[in-house]
C-alpha cells in the first residue's frame, strides 16, 4: 500500500519556529497543498511579512521575498507588474497588514493587483510579544492594553474583509478560520479559489483566516480555540464577502 498522506512538495523539511498550538502551521500547509494541486510552485513567489511568519521563506519551497513591515502588497505589485506570468502571494499578520501596512493593502486591492493575500488574524501582535493589534477585541488584555482594549481611545477592531469589500474594484474577499477540521476544509477551498482567480488574471484575491495565538493570549491551545469561537467568530463573521462575478 502506498502513502496516503504526505507533506506537500511546496513545504520544506525545516522545523518551524512556531509555538505549540499555533495555527500558522495549518495555514502554511493549506497554501502549500493548493500550490501543489495547481502545479504552480515553479512560478510562484511568496512574500514574507514582518511578524511571526517572517521566516516563512524557510518553510516553503518556492521563491520568496522578505518584505518590510506592512509593505508586502507593494512588493507583490512590483512583482506582478513586471512579471505577470509569475504567481505572487503575500502572507501577512494583523499588525503587518491592518496597522502599519494599511495603506499598501488598501491601494493594492483597489488597483486590482493580480496577486493573493493570506491574512492571518489572531487579534494580537505575535512576534513582538503580545501587543494590541488593530483587530484586538474590546476589553482584550494585551501587553499594551493591560487593562483591556479601551475602545474609547483605541477605536473598535478593524474588519478587513468588510473594509476591503467597500472598494468598487472587482475582487475576491473571503474570511474563514482554522479552528476545527470543518472550517479548515472551507479555508482551503477559499485559498484555492483565491489562487485560481489570480491564475486566470481575474482580480485581486484576499483570504482572511481567523487564527489563534495561545502564547500571547495566555491560554492553552484548547482554551484558545474555545475563546476564538466564542469571542472572535461572532465579530469576524465567516463567509464570502465579494467575488468578481458579482460585478
Amino acid at each position: 500500500m502506498g502513502k496516503t498522506f504526505s507533506k506537500p512538495e511546496a513545504l520544506s523539511d525545516a522545523y518551524t519556529h512556531y509555538c505549540p498550538g499555533c495555527t500558522h502551521g495549518i495555514a502554511h500547509r493549506l497554501v502549500a497543498e493548493v500550490i501543489d494541486e495547481l502545479g504552480i510552485r515553479g512560478r510562484t513567489v511568496g512574500i514574507a511579512p514582518v511578524g511571526c511568519a517572517v521566516l516563512a521563506y524557510n518553510y516553503f519551497t518556492c521563491d520568496f521575498q522578505e518584505a518590510a513591515h506592512g509593505r508586502a502588497p507593494a512588493m507583490a505589485t512590483g512583482i506582478k507588474r513586471v512579471r505577470p506570468d509569475l504567481i505572487a502571494f503575500t502572507y501577512q499578520g494583523d499588525g503587518d497588514l491592518a496597522s502599519i501596512g494599511m495603506g499598501e493593502i488598501v491601494h493594492a486591492a483597489n488597483r486590482g493587483e493580480k496577486f493573493t493575500t493570506i491574512f492571518i488574524n489572531n487579534a494580537v501582535y505575535g512576534m513582538t510579544g503580545g501587543q494590541m493589534a488593530p483587530t484586538t477585541m474590546p476589553g482584550q488584555r494585551t501587553t499594551t492594553s493591560p487593562m483591556g482594549r479601551d475602545v474609547t481611545t483605541t477605536g473598535m477592531p478593524i474588519k478587513m474583509c468588510e473594509l476591503l469589500s467597500t472598494l468598487e474594484t472587482p475582487g475576491y474577499i473571503e474570511r474563514q478560520t482554522l479552528l476545527n477540521p470543518k472550517y479548515i476544509k472551507k479555508a482551503k477551498k477559499a485559498i484555492k479559489r483565491a489562487f485560481e482567480y489570480q491564475i486566470a488574471g481575474k482580480c485581486y484575491s484576499f483570504v482572511e483566516l481567523v487564527s489563534i495565538c495561545p502564547t500571547n493570549w495566555g491560554k492553552t491551545p484548547l482554551e484558545s480555540l474555545k475563546w476564538a469561537e466564542e469571542s472572535l467568530l461572532p465579530y469576524y463573521k465567516l463567509g464570502e464577502f465579494k467575488t468578481p462575478e458579482e460585478e
Binding site: A67, R71, A74, M75, G78, E104
Partner: peptide, 13 residues
C-alpha cells in the same frame, strides 16, 4: 513608501 517597495519587488525579480 509604497513605490520604494514596488521597486524592491520588481528588482528582486
Amino acid at each position: 513608501v509604497a513605490v520604494g517597495y514596488m521597486i524592491f519587488g520588481a528588482a528582486a525579480c
